[in-house]
């Protein structure tokens, strides 16, 4: 199908974007980073088209539904939200070094979706329980949350690397990373956006579960892990807002938080549960 062909090309485009961003920093050539931006934009555009095509194709197959219903589709959407948020950050900050740390995440998500033998790119019909507008809003909000946390993870890595930067070392790559206070601010902004989205995601998920199964919270492993992630980020926000923690500690906590996000998304598949991606 056309959409999965475009999507597998997008994977390579994101890889190329990553390479350009990386080389730009290693060789200190701004022009390469600009090419990276162009590649990212092309990739994002192609991916947007492919997602819409997939939506349309599902209707021509007679099983019409929004393309967020299995692991393949969710990974594609995850990569899309990361790239979209990243493009906004790049545009707002006018700084392209973030690309080196963020585009590989989108590339990895796409590569996993396109090349893992366990993941089918077929459009599958929806079982009745998954036919719900609440479920669509659940997926969209959750993945914007995950993407914001992914960016925050990238900024945290950059922060920790930037700490290694000093005059003596004179390393171009490290010097090109923006200053620590900028990274710390951006990191916190992403955590805040991610937390709001995750909260919305958990709530819309509960509303959906309530209409489908009659219970808004059943402690199934995926639910519980999203709550764990929420608790971790809530404590990050309190440490920062009330206790004034900054910098390194927040960066480390954010990395732990993102590990929880990944476990909520993938790790839970090894624990049994209700969620459809788990099977």
């Amino acid at each position: 199908m056309l959409n999965s062909i475009i999507l597998s090309y997008t994977t390579f485009v994101y890889f190329a974007a990553f390479m350009f961003y990386l080389l730009a920093m290693v060789m200190n050539r701004e022009i390469l980073a600009r090419i990276g931006t162009v590649a990212s934009l092309i990739g994002l555009l192609a991916q947007t088209v492919a997602i819409i095509l997939r939506w349309v194709e599902s209707y021509t197959l007679g099983v019409g539904h929004a393309p967020f219903s299995n692991l393949y589709e969710s990974l594609v959407f995850f990569a899309w939200t990361i790239m979209l948020l990243y493009m906004i950050v790049e545009w707002r900050t006018k700084n392209r070094t973030f690309g080196t740390f963020v585009t590989p995440l989108a590339f990895l998500a796409m590569a996993y979706a396109s090349f893992s033998p366990n993941i089918s790119s077929q459009i599958q019909p929806l079982i009745p329980a998954l036919k719900s507008n609440w479920l669509i809003s659940h997926v969209i909000t959750c993945f914007f949350g995950y993407a914001a946390f992914a960016l925050s993870f990238g900024f945290s890595l950059m922060y920790l690397l930037k700490r290694l930067d000093n005059q003596k070392r004179n390393n171009i790559f490290l010097q090109l990373i923006p200053g620590r206070s900028i990274l710390d601010d951006l990191n916190y902004q992403m955590i805040v956006v991610g937390f709001l989205m995750l909260t919305l995601g958990i709530i819309t998920g509960s509303v959906w579960a309530h209409s489908a199964w009659g219970t808004y919270w059943s402690w199934d492993p995926k639910e519980t892990w999203s709550l764990i992630t929420w608790l971790i980020y809530a404590s990050v926000i309190h440490s920062r807002m009330v206790r004034g923690w900054k910098g390194k500690r927040i960066a480390i906590l954010s990395i732990i938080g993102f590990a929880c996000v990944l476990f909520t998304y993938f790790g839970v598949n090894y624990l049994a549960g209700l969620h459809s991606y788990a099977s």
Partner: peptide
Amino acid sequence: TVKLTIVLLIILAIVSILGTLVPQ
């Protein structure tokens, strides 16, 4: 104190992790 809040949030997170490892 908000110190207690942070400690409680983290304890709840750890306990919930336990709950996903031990079948309920």
